[in-house]
Design a protein around this nucleic acid. Structure first.
Length: 414
RNA sequence: GUGGCCGUAGCUCAAUGGCAGAGCACUGGAUUGUGGCUCCAGUGGUUGUGGGUUCGAGUCCCAUCGGUCACC
């Protein structure tokens, strides 16, 4: 296969427009075959070729510039081959703007079961029907080429947190070898392939990984392996260690981050792109994002509030409905509540990105960031990490029972 | 009218005569390369009412009120 990375660099130009003198925050433009992305930008997550509960028309209206789709999910269902026959993922989901696809690496580690890992790839069981599957760097790239996304990600190994230095090092080195194979496997020139920096919370490994991955000259770079249960301090320490080692003329993408306050921090570290399930997930669970922090929509205080959930917001939800109505929808578990809250939270993230960009272009991001963080209320981190651990444990404990139920269904015993 | 059964948290129900509890609901949180899931914490009681037996009663006895079923 011809190496097409240099050909791709023309189609995927990143133009740096401004750098904040105080923090190093960047404003730029990233061009793709399906349009230009103004950065910093937040990418809504559309796991199964849909941003849950929303139509493409609504995503355009709320200002989404690019969405993320998950290769792992689409590979298992309906199958990337099927999507290729239907004309690719843009046509399939009727989204005409840019799409970034995850490689499936993270999902294999977080969702699949009974996985066995070797240097060639990963064998695992589908979380949908228990069938045995195998992904390698080559297959992950082939799958993403069948999807036809604008930006593909290298197949990587994301280690769990916490982990040992030795294990993190082995995973980062394997990620490097897999990045070389991913790059060699690429055959299309109308898709960009991003490399991923790993190394867990160890700065020396992050530095080593950044050096290895950038030597492969990808059109963009991601920082992976964060937002997996580590402290904020670790997350920002690692991010701040990596971004100075990445080329200034390529986009940087911090995977799986984040919340509004995390975007503000990430941008201050010099990150351009973010994706996170949090805004849409907490929307479905009844939490709205505002400049003063998160608002639980079921709180009784909102039962009679005629004003919208965020008076400063210009989204369809806030222009049209009272907080009392959203409160009612969530108490009654009505479907419209999931949609209206998702519209609001994604509009909030789009506006937040635009506000940061504006501040950077005016050379006053440092001050803007201080003002934002002064009024944005965040949850206590100790509570956050404790609860995360308990939820993870509950999820793992429930899994065998779910698998057994699935097993008996598929084998026809039950 | 007679007989049986049942009255415990807002609801559905637990509790050998020995610290009155659970689920749901309600209140407040959490959710980070997707988990419409889930988790954490909290409020809430004259055990229908009045007597009695007992060291001790939601539990046993009597009365009474309410519900319910069967039979006149």
């Amino acid at each position: 296969m011809p190496n097409t990375a240099s050909g791709a660099s023309d189609a995927f130009r990143y133009t740096l427009e401004a750098t904040d003198p105080e923090t190093g925050a960047r404003a730029g433009r990233f061009s793709t075959p399906h349009g230009e992305i103004l950065t910093p930008a937040f990418m809504p997550v559309g796991t199964q070729a849909t941003v849950k509960s929303l139509s493409p028309r609504e995503l355009v209206e709320l200002g989404a510039q690019i969405v993320l789709a998950n290769t792992y999910h689409l590979y298992l269902r309906p199958g990337t081959e099927t999507i290729a026959r239907l004309g690719g993922v843009h046509k399939f989901m009727r989204w005409e703007r840019p799409i970034l696809t995850d490689s499936g690496g993270f999902q294999v580690f977080s969702l699949a079961h009974l996985r066995t890992l070797d240097d060639d790839g990963v064998t695992f069981r589908s979380h949908i029907d228990g069938s045995e599957q195998r992904l390698t760097p080559e297959r992950a790239i082939a799958a993403q080429e069948q999807l036809g996304s604008d930006v593909m990600m290298c197949f990587d190994e994301c280690v769990e947190y916490p982990t040992t230095h030795a294990r993190a090092r082995a995973a980062a080195q394997r990620t490097h070898r897999w990045a070389e194979r991913s790059r060699r496997a690429q055959s299309r020139s109308d898709q960009a392939l991003f490399g991923i920096v790993q190394g867990s919370t160890f700065e020396d490994l992050r530095t080593e990984s950044a050096r290895d991955i950038t030597s492969l000259d990808f059109p963009g770079y991601a920082i992976g392996g964060v937002s997996v249960g580590e402290s904020k301090e670790d997350c920002w320490r690692v991010t701040a260690a990596v971004t100075p080692l990445l080329p200034t003329h390529k986009p940087r993408y911090l995977m799986g981050v984040g919340s509004p306050e995390d975007l503000v921090e990430g941008v201050a570290c010099g990150v351009d792109l973010f994706d996170c399930v949090l805004p849409t997930r907490i929307a479905r669970n009844g939490t709205a994002l505002t400049d003063t922090g998160r608002v639980t929509l079921t709180r009784s205080q909102l039962r009679t509030q005629e004003a919208p959930i965020d008076a400063t917001c210009d989204c369809y939800t806030c222009r049209t409905f009272s907080a009392a109505y959203l409160h009612h929808l969530f108490k009654a578990e009505e479907l419209l509540g999931y949609r209206l809250a998702s519209i609001h939270n994604l509009r909030y993230m789009a506006r937040l990105s635009a506000r940061m960009r504006e501040a950077i272009l005016h050379g006053r991001y440092g001050a803007w960031r201080r003002e934002f963080l002064a009024t944005y209320r965040v949850a206590d981190e100790k509570t956050r990490l404790e609860q995360r651990e308990k939820r993870t444990a509950a999820w793992s404990a429930a899994r065998p029972a779910l698998d057994a139920a699935r097993e008996s269904r598929t084998s026809g015993v039950a």
